[in-house]
Design a protein around this nucleic acid. Sequence first.
DNA 1: CAACTACCTGACCACAGAGTCAACAAGTTA
DNA 2: TAACTTGTTGACTCTGTGGTCAGGTAGTTG
Lengths: 216, 216
Amino acid sequence: MTDTKKSVIKRRKSADIRKGNLQLILTVAEQRFAEFGYNGTTISSIAEQANLPKSNILYYFKTKEVLYKEVLSQILKIWLVDMEEMTADQHPKEALRQYILLKVRQSKDHSNASRIFASELLHGAPFLKEKLQTDLKVQFISTCQVIREWIAKQWMNPISPEHLLFMIWSSTQAYADYGLQSSILMGKAELDDDDFETGAELITQIVLRGCGIKQL
Amino acid sequence: MTDTKKSVIKRRKSADIRKGNLQLILTVAEQRFAEFGYNGTTISSIAEQANLPKSNILYYFKTKEVLYKEVLSQILKIWLVDMEEMTADQHPKEALRQYILLKVRQSKDHSNASRIFASELLHGAPFLKEKLQTDLKVQFISTCQVIREWIAKQWMNPISPEHLLFMIWSSTQAYADYGLQSSILMGKAELDDDDFETGAELITQIVLRGCGIKQL
DNA sequence: CAACTACCTGACCACAGAGTCAACAAGTTA
DNA sequence: TAACTTGTTGACTCTGTGGTCAGGTAGTTG
């Protein structure tokens, strides 16, 4: 009994070490990459912030590139999930509102991930190009189709679904990407919850009205 | 006569060397910084692309940082100019349309500059913070005031000028920042003139309708 | 406890990249 | 032409960084 228990405890403890360190490193790495970019981030700086020796980082991730890709890989998933929820049978009034809200929330809650993603795109998506051409593109085409059906049902004005999506993406994404700049301009240390809510609401209003979608 | 002429020619030639090299370096540097970011860009790579020895770059720009700041400094100016043109006596219908058009054009014609600016903001504007707090903020506040006056005149719905500007900035800026991603999704090598026009028109329509600005 | 595996880490290496410098070339002016 | 300024460049230094490695320790299993 004691043996088993002890063994179990130890086994769990050992697994926890790995899991814990992995998580710690990924979290810290995400912060650093978001702030300084891939080239501006050193393994040493990650190590320092995580309170681990540099060699230990390299023990879990063979190279810096592997670590970065690992961080990246989780981001695209998050990005795609929200879009899937828009379907043709929903009314755009609800669907778009919800999507915009989620995207802005994401900019707030996963600001680092969002910024890394943006930075990646900005520099030509060297590590993401393939995934964009497959996963994201499939989802994109499908969502454009949904919008086309909304238009066919005359639930909204006939406008380019592609450009509409670009507009929604960029304006919601901006609350992560340019949050700092925005806060400077608005004269505060950082954007608060209200700012995000106001932003989401404004984007929603403008998009819905702009697309000729009658509200209520 | 011959002497003077010769002298003049030589003087001009000498000045031209400086001017020409300066311009060449700045242009190449802008490309590299846009594509690889500050840390991802090496002086050697700039030198190579400009067909100059590395030392020569350092002769004109004491350090990499000086060169980068020089590139940056020209960008903010461009960014501010268009905004100045929006004034309270104009009707937002015209003013916003024009501003959006200019901003999208800028994303097309000065894509590198736009991307450097975006990248700078994305990483907390380490080199631009001061200028943002002064120049850009002044212009921002003033433009917000213009919008407030439009609202007071009931030329548009009462919406937050700050967030409206963020929305316009980000959605127009996106045509530079995410141009590559967009082209991938739309299945072409790069966005063509039509895409930019369509984008500008769509943003304009949505913003004008979204703000409750009657067109014509 | 013994053998084993997973985890940890300081010392080390190779190399790239920013910036210096000294010597030289080319234009400029009197 | 002589004195001077401006431009040019290869060779060099020095720091920082990604990554290796060997020798450790701590958990694990029979």
